Amino acid sequence: MSDEGASPRELLLEACRRNNTELLHDVFNDIANALSEKGSPSERTADLINNARDGIGNNCLHIAATYGSYDALDLILDQEGVEVDPVDRLEKDTPLHKSVRFVNGLSKDEWDEGKSIVEILVDAGADPRIRNKANLKAMDLVDPRNTELRSMLQRAEFAMTAGGDVVQEDDEEDGAGSASDSE
């Protein structure tokens, strides 16, 4: 693997771009077998996945979602400790935002196939309530004609909210009843 001189970060990002699960397995195995590095193999793998970024600030989940790399997403999301809602540097998009943009770029006949990219992220716990730099949730980006995808994201948002997983604003985290909250 290191014969070409590519770093694990570069290989991880390229595997996501190309939906290359064989290369992903090689990267994960190399990380697991690196005896000189600190932490458990699963911690090192999660660290690489969560911190590897391309030149414009996309991590591997952003890249896999952008390119519709379902198999790569599946393998990455199976790793322990993976953060499913990182934001990119430019648009502050999550991988869920990127997956909706991917589906929008498909022909209407391919929407069902593309929906699986969104579904796998939602199933892994991606939060459909997160807003990007333009103050848009992933659902706000859905092509208006794609009512099935919009409904799926609405159900996911409702399930998270009904399940008590409420997104709190910074000033609400201190608890209700403070003097600044009542003014």
Rank of each mutant, 00 (worst) to 15 (best):
V103S: 00
N132D: 14
L77C: 08
Y67G: 03
D123M: 15
G105S: 09
V84Y: 06
I130Q: 10
I130P: 08
T66Q: 12
N135G: 06
R101T: 14
I120E: 01
T94P: 02
E91M: 15
E119R: 13
V84E: 09
D78L: 11
E80H: 15
D93I: 02
V84T: 14
A64M: 01
A124K: 04
Q79K: 12
E110F: 11
E80I: 05
A134H: 10
L96K: 03
K115W: 10
D74F: 11
D123K: 14
G105L: 00
W111N: 10
P95D: 08
R131H: 00
M139R: 15
I130C: 00
V84I: 11
V122H: 10
A138T: 07
Y70T: 04
S69E: 00
A64P: 07
K115N: 14
K92S: 11
H62Q: 06
H62D: 03
V122D: 00
L73A: 04
Q79N: 02
A64E: 04
E91F: 15
P128T: 08
G81L: 08
E83D: 15
A138I: 08
F102N: 09
N132C: 05
W111D: 04
E91K: 11
K133C: 10
A134D: 13
K98H: 13
D78P: 09
A134R: 13
S116W: 11
R89C: 13
T94L: 01
K137H: 13
E83C: 12
I120F: 02
D109T: 14
H97N: 02
A126N: 05
E119L: 14
I76Y: 03
L136S: 14
G105K: 09
K98I: 01
K92T: 08
G68R: 06
A138R: 09
K108L: 11
A65M: 03
V100A: 04
